[in-house]
Design a binder for these strands. Structure first.
Lengths: 211, 211
DNA sequence: GTCTATACTTCGATAGAC
DNA sequence: GTCTATCGAAGTATAGAC
């Protein structure tokens, strides 16, 4: 008694994610999302009341997923430095599992959150809050020097997102021979981020016989 | 014999910069650009043959300006570490002089350079090339540890752009009381970036009596 | 739940007078 | 160089049959 194959809203959301990542909210075409999901437009509007609501649902999911991963890292029994290593690797893992995330994040930052409602913004806000909690824990315990949690958040997340979202443009620039740069894989980039952050967050060695 | 006040293409470009920053290429409306520049649409099309050409002209200017500033820094007589401090401050200065830049950069990275032609991409590519030259100089002289130039470029630029472009969404999140974070001015952020980068790039102290 | 056809709107771009 | 008026294309969303 197999149920007839039903088009799940999930397939629409996946198609929407690719379209919004490629073209942004304004550039995304509802027709194209429907075609990518192998659904007709009316079906899409049956599951989601508008392009905007589809977008909000998608972003709320993204942010919630990231917050759940970060929450697991923050609650684990590990030193702040190890947690920060895991945060960096965790962001990279999420992005590799969902290659559309960086472009969507970049665009939404540029939009100033214009298409987001309160619950979506709340889901978004929990991401920096969790990172800040780890940083503050490390600063309080002396594992880190005095780092501003907001600075920590941006210096951790931004290079990863920028680098990974920038892969297409980097490929284009290098295929036009406009610049010749040594290869740098995503895994290399993560390791470089971890090394740089460990050095950047480390407390100063106490001045010899201070005071 | 004052010339009659003529609408300069520059005013159209300034209006276009704000519109493209606020809404992206796809979301930008030619009518709105014209209205913002106090010009009618036909006038705009008299100076620029299409929305795309207007966009390309704008971005080529942006990248060229940034490359010129970086070039002056790279050629100066200073240590690599000081040059990197100046690169960070220089990016921040350019952004403060042109507050529309971050959003446009974020969007263009997300677009994968889709709207750019070869000369515009060439202007863009010279920015990471100049940063890479400074980093490679520092690595070669022993002033820096072995830093990958591409990693250096992204870890310098991305946090600044992300942080400054994210100001509107940060204000919205904090005005909704979704998160309560200590203030962090742009100048503070620049100083934090400089400190973090100096620590991150510094060479390892030689192991005591190694070998 | 699923589809076709279409109403209504808005946009990029141009024609043509001055 | 500058303007008004408008065209044709393309977009979001819905009506209504099945």
């Amino acid at each position: 008694m197999a149920r007839p194959a039903r088009v799940s809203p999930d397939e629409i959301l996946n198609a929407a994610a690719r379209e919004f990542a490629d073209r942004g909210f304004a550039g995304a075409r509802v027709d194209r999302i429907a075609r990518r999901a192998a659904v007709n437009k009316a079906m899409l509007y049956y599951h989601f009341k508008s392009k905007q609501q589809l977008y909000r649902t998608l972003l709320r999911r993204m942010f919630t997923l990231a917050a759940e991963r970060l929450n697991a890292i923050a609650r684990a029994d590990a030193s702040p430095a190890v947690k920060i290593d895991r945060v960096i690797a965790g962001f990279a893992t999420i992005i590799q599992e969902h290659p559309v995330f960086p472009a969507i994040m970049l665009r939404e930052v540029a939009e100033g959150g214009a298409h987001l409602d309160r619950p979506t913004l709340a889901a978004l806000a929990s991401v920096p809050r969790l990172v800040a909690a780890i940083v503050e824990e490390g600063v309080a315990s002396g594992a880190f020097r005095a780092i501003h949690p907001v600075f920590a958040y941006f210096s951790l997340l931004a290079p990863l997102v920028f680098y990974l979202a920038g892969t297409p443009i980097r490929k284009e620039i290098s295929s036009l021979h406009l610049i010749n740069l040594r290869a740098l894989s995503a895994a290399d980039f993560v390791r470089a981020m971890q090394q740089a952050t460990r050095r950047s967050f480390a407390p100063d060695p106490p001045a010899r016989a201070a005071r």
